[in-house]
Design a binder for these strands. Structure first.
Lengths: 244, 244
DNA sequence: CTGCCGCTGTACGGTACCGTACGGGCGACG
DNA sequence: CGTCGCCCGTACGGTACCGTACAGCGGCAG
């Protein structure tokens, strides 16, 4: 197997690349991401793609009345702007920073595309991430249809937890409402339920995961399938799929 | 612009290819598809991909208890098994014939992949279809969350109508229930509502679209966005996006 | 200190769904 | 010609949500 990149990136995709592949992408521009920063503007040419190193971006559909519905989540395991790899210069969806303060590596679309055409391994890895993202979306469809809010919330918290360093998740109830497609008030109520089960603690703007295994049990079938797909097509990350 | 295929296929993707690209894919195997025939078996290597020429396949998540949830629809505008183009030999989802009696062209995965690596134009077209399919899924997420069943049903009927020759849709209420993620009984009730609005007529096993513009108006924002994306990335088909 | 704004808690009636169930018609097959 | 399996119609109570609304609390700016 080819040698892995020596430069350590905190982005999982980049860390799976060979040093040669990484060299072909260089230089990256480092960016510090603030909450609500837009990484992909819908229906607008994508100038750069971002590889997050920390923090969370969420992917939204934007409706005509300006309201938003969450369709996916991206952290240091992924990237934004994959549409350009599918031969499209833009995306119908918005990618926006939900949890800021983190860093990211960005690269102009043009250079990414050139690198991908020169080095098939690059392209292949990123396309497998697209495969994973479709699994995530599919699971969101079924979870939204079949699960009560508590379970969907548990799933969403777990997905955030996977992508963050510690046990603290800095999200407001409003943001969670958008991601889950429910009222802000429903989020409040539901957080209290999870808190009553001693799975989390919740204070103003912060949710603390206090019983991760319990949360997984609570989420049931809704969490785990897409994550297994990630491990299968990309590889383990942050404890997920780690050797036991 | 390069010449298009002279051999007329009833599959939109194939019809957009140049004759040289098509030659590279040949020979196709022609298949007649019966209802409930499985085109993609979840978590199983994909031996062949199918380009439908008529009929409808639906894409499902399969849950542990064996129940299914619809996440997408494929007709003569698309293909099954795109996972292999994303570098994965299998898919977590099932593709199964919902409306049979139609034909399809199939090609072994291996030959497809060889052709795609020889001819970038092939690969690019199919990847743009993946981009469209993600739009379709995203729209399903928001529609399931925000729209009452009537509107979701209207959307689903329109999507079927786009992919069929006439105004008759041969689907049972059960099948629609799976696609929409609702009870069979809810489908029955909702069909009566649409019938009351004189948008459709419904008899045993058959739904007839009698007022397509009315149905579009009824569906509202839920229908049209993903379809526009198809026209943008692939091109017009069957009246959709046709020059006016 | 004061005011304001963003975030959270809570309440209330309303309704669009669900699970379940049962009966009846149509078509196929013996 | 009877019977069986798939479809469809309809009913019923139950509940998990929604839209809306309002009040309290925390922190930041002035």
């Amino acid at each position: 197997m080819a040698p892995r990149s020596r430069l350590q990136f905190n982005n999982v995709l980049l860390s799976k690349l060979t040093a040669d592949d990484v060299a072909c992408l260089q230089p990256f521009e480092r960016a510090q991401l603030a909450r609500d920063q837009v990484l992909v503007d819908p229906h607008t040419p994508i100038a750069s793609v971002f590889f997050l190193e920390s923090g969370i971006a969420s992917v939204h559909e934007v409706l005509r009345d300006g309201s938003r519905v969450g369709v996916g989540i991206i952290g240091f395991e992924g990237m934004t702007g994959w549409s350009v790899l599918l031969g499209c210069d833009r995306s119908p969806h918005e990618a926006i920073i939900a949890i800021g303060g983190g860093g990211a590596l960005s690269i102009p679309t043009e250079r990414l595309l050139r690198a991908c055409s020169d080095r098939p391994g690059l392209n292949a890895l990123f396309l497998r991430y697209v495969q994973y993202f479709m699994s995530q979306m599919a699971r969101t469809i079924t979870s939204n249809l079949r699960d009560p809010i508590e379970r969907r919330l548990a799933r969403w918290l777990l997905m955030n937890h996977d992508r963050l360093g510690g046990d603290e998740i800095h999200l407001t109830h409003d943001q969670l409402g958008v991601m889950l497609g429910v009222r802000r008030a429903s989020v409040t109520d539901t957080l209290h339920i999870l808190e009553g089960e001693r799975l989390i603690r919740s204070t103003r703007g912060v949710i603390v995961i206090s019983d991760r295994p319990g949360l997984e049990a609570f989420a049931g079938e809704t969490y785990g399938v897409a994550e297994a797909e990630y491990v299968r097509v990309i590889g383990p990350f942050a404890g997920l799929g780690a050797v036991h």
